[in-house]
Design a protein around this nucleic acid. Structure first.
Lengths: 65, 65
DNA sequence: GCAATATGTAAAATATATATTACAATGAGT
DNA sequence: ACTCATTGTAATATATATTTTACATATTGC
């Protein structure tokens, strides 16, 4: 269950995993794992990712039922 | 920085901290700490709380800029 | 007053998110 | 073919989320 929305939003912004990681303040591996989906990040990290990508929590992390 | 929205949504549903904790599958202390605000829960827990309370992530956890 | 329920809070233990380091694989460009 | 940037992934270490146990307080109903 990979999170394709995060990857799509990142690529749409022209950002690499490393760049997004630096913007958010985590490592590249953490971003990669989140995009891969086998992972349960904290809400603060999710919020940071959303802010960096110009999205909201619902847009990137909410599973519509 | 307490999260008043979660507490309000829980009380509005007539749920106690213990009942919400059981619905979500965590302990009462965890719910209490999240409501108190000094805490950084995982997104899966946030999603579980949202589902139990009939809200979305943006409604309960998003800080509008 | 007393028992029961709900909440606040704290210390120690456990589970897991995240960092660190490292190496492999792919693709773009020269 | 070669270099460089990007990504996948894994093992170990560290930070922190969550549990467990426990006690205190407030409130409500009997």
């Amino acid at each position: 269950m990979a999170n394709a929305r995060i990857k799509a939003a990142r690529v749409a912004r022209g950002l690499t995993q490393t760049e997004l990681a630096n913007l958010v303040g985590v490592t590249r591996q953490t971003i990669g794992a989140i995009e891969k989906g086998d992972y349960n990040p904290t809400i603060q990290l999710c919020i940071g990712i959303c802010r960096a990508l110009g999205k909201t929590l619902d847009e990137l992390f909410w599973e519509g039922d």
